[in-house]
Write a protein that binds this DNA or RNA. Sequence first.
DNA 1: GTAGTTCGAGAATATTCTTCGGTCTCGATG
DNA 2: CATCGAGACCGAAGAATATTCTCGAACTAC
Lengths: 152, 152
Amino acid sequence: MPTLDRIDRALLGLLQKDARMSNKELAASVGLAPSSCLARVRRLEAEGVITGYRTELAPRSLGLDLQALIAVQLRLHVGEAFNSIGDHLRSLPETVAVYCLGGATDFLVHVACRDTEHLRVLTIRSFTSRPEVSRIETSLVFSFSRSNLAVE
Amino acid sequence: MPTLDRIDRALLGLLQKDARMSNKELAASVGLAPSSCLARVRRLEAEGVITGYRTELAPRSLGLDLQALIAVQLRLHVGEAFNSIGDHLRSLPETVAVYCLGGATDFLVHVACRDTEHLRVLTIRSFTSRPEVSRIETSLVFSFSRSNLAVE
DNA sequence: GTAGTTCGAGAATATTCTTCGGTCTCGATG
DNA sequence: CATCGAGACCGAAGAATATTCTCGAACTAC
């Protein structure tokens, strides 16, 4: 369990906002020499604090105009089914995110589709036709925005 | 509405997986000269296909061991309240993501907290005590994983 | 004190970025 | 059928950056 000091947190805050910030600029922002800064970032990566650098795309630019949240309720709650359906949901090309939940809903899946027909086919082919799935409920996503984690 | 050819899509796929990949490596992966590759990426940024580069952090490393989804139902559905509560939810330091939904639930908020006490205080202070909020329902998040958008 | 440890600075090297012509292809046009 | 222009790519070179390495300061424990 790594301890994060003030500088680590500043780095994480900056990198969350812009993962492509150069090491030099990063170093200047936190008041370190580039070499020291790089060592810190490498350490944060190695310790697993930083889990990856992702590029965020506009779904619309990819022709995915329709986003939905699909709440999934399972028939069997044995561990086996839980894992296999989880992997299945994560592997769908339409999937943006998968939540595994406690409560009445077992999974909540955020999907991006081209249009309503695409969504309709998706829910049938990849959700309701699976034997583990008891019931789903689909909600339209009007807007979606992600925030940075608080690092302080 | 920009048209994305095969190379654009390859670039987006690679950058989604690793936003810090160097331009040189990126160029080699798609069979382009670095200069041409850079021009493509710049164009994708300018066209709004790429909306940002984010660093993904492990919530646990930040002492945020407890994640939850909070479904929010509003009292008034006028546009005014809708925007103000949306901004409020997005501005919370605990917020990871905010969905604005159609259906019975108006907002779904993904939050990360230190512990149950933190979550309890959060739901009261930042959710139920707001006048626009009629009712909330909190679900525990056992696991959460994000996928890359299909670019092909 | 002193040895060990951690952390950062600075220099030197390796690598990469970025710009700037130049070339090629392709389609339209005279 | 030749010419022209637009668009896309490549390659080279200077500038900027990343990375490695070594050294020294501050701190700890004994």
